[in-house]
Every structure is written in structure tokens, then in C-alpha cells.
Amino acid sequence: MRIEVDDLSRPEIHALLNEHLQSMHALSPPESVHALDLDKLRQPEITFWSVWEGAQLLGCGALKELDARHGEVKSMRTPAALRRTGAGRAVLAHIIEVAKSRDYARLSLETGSMEAFRPAQALYESFGFSYCGPFGDYTDDPNSVFMTKTL
């Protein structure tokens, strides 16, 4: 399994991000979808990684710099057919290590509050993230759960 910085140009990435956006829109009302499209992921404050096994895309994740001491986990996704391969754990561990190397004091994230998001919440909990209130530009939303980890 290899994790690499991704320039978001490959069709496999486009397909996975399309799956991600479709899933988020199917599970949440439009005003509660905070997933980023390709253009928003190409912003300079975001680093995007993809996870590969040979030529097969296993997943992705991104780190957004909110300020010099605070980062946000974004775009965590594994293809539905390839869940439970360890790619999500691997990319999250990588994101945490990069955040530490950047001297962030805190790493936060937003995910859904519905039952479909419980596996993601459990993954984040297993890495020491705890529930918190909204951060950055987020506001209270019954469809969102906010989590943070002190680094």
C-alpha cells in the first residue's frame, strides 16, 4: 500500500470523489453537505493524498490548513467495494503525522451524524479524536458531528 500526494488529475480519483459527493448528497440535506469537489480540493491550503495497491485506488484523504496551528481532515473516502482494506486507517495516520510535522496543535473534522457515518466516527475515535462543537466556518447542524484531536 502506498500513499502519495495526488494532483487530482487521474480518472480513478475523479470517480472516487464523484462517488463520495453522490453519497454525501444521498445521506444529507444539501445545506449539510461539506464534501469538497475537485475545484475546492485544488486550493493551496489543501494537500490531497491517494492510497494505492499497485494500480488499484484504495482511498483518499486531505488536510486543509485552517490556520498555522489548526488543520482539518477532509475528503476521507474508500470505494464502497474496497472498504475494510486498511486504506482509511493508513491515510488518516498519514494525515496526523503530516499535521504534527507542520506543528499543528489541533486537528479537527466534520462528519455526518446519521447511522451511516458511525463507522467513520468509530475510526476517528480509535485515533483519539473526541467530539466537540463547530470550528472554523461551521455552525451547529443536527446533521453534522464535529471531532478534534490535540496533537
Rank of each mutant, 00 (worst) to 15 (best):
M1T: 04
R2Y: 02
I3S: 03
V5Q: 09
D6V: 02
L8I: 00
S9V: 01
R10V: 01
R10K: 12
R10H: 12
R10G: 02
E12T: 04
A15I: 02
L16H: 07
L16R: 04
N18G: 03
N18L: 08
E19R: 04
H20W: 00
Q22P: 00
S23H: 12
S23C: 09
S23F: 14
L27N: 07
L27G: 01
S28M: 15
P29G: 09
P30L: 11
P30Q: 10
S32E: 11
S32T: 08
H34W: 14
A35I: 06
A35M: 05
L36Y: 10
L36K: 05
K40V: 08
K40E: 14
L41G: 07
I46M: 00
I46D: 00
T47S: 09
F48K: 04
W49T: 07
W49N: 06
W49Q: 05
E53A: 07
A55T: 08
Q56T: 15
L57E: 07
L58P: 00
G59Q: 02
C60F: 04
A62H: 00
A62W: 01
L63M: 13
K64E: 14
K64V: 02
E65T: 14
L66T: 08
L66Q: 13
A68V: 13
A68R: 15
R69A: 13
G71F: 11
E72M: 05
E72C: 08
K74W: 01
R77P: 00
T78I: 05
T78F: 01
A81H: 09
L82D: 01
R84H: 12
T85P: 00
T85N: 01
G86E: 05
G86C: 02
A87W: 00
A87M: 06
A87E: 01
R89E: 13
V91I: 13
A93M: 09
A93F: 11
A93E: 13
I96Y: 04
I96V: 10
E97P: 05
E97N: 14
V98C: 05
V98L: 11
A99M: 09
A99I: 06
A99H: 11
K100R: 15
K100Q: 14
R102G: 08
R102C: 13
A105Q: 12
R106Y: 06
L109F: 08
E110L: 09
E110F: 10
G112H: 06
S113D: 03
E115W: 13
P119A: 06
A120Q: 09
A120H: 03
A120D: 05
A120M: 08
Q121A: 11
Q121E: 14
Q121R: 15
Q121D: 06
A122G: 01
Y124I: 02
E125D: 08
S126T: 04
F127T: 06
F129R: 12
F129N: 10
S130E: 15
S130G: 15
C132S: 15
G133T: 03
P134R: 12
P134T: 07
P134I: 10
F135T: 10
G136W: 14
D137W: 11
T139D: 15
P142M: 14
V145Y: 09
K149V: 01
L151M: 14
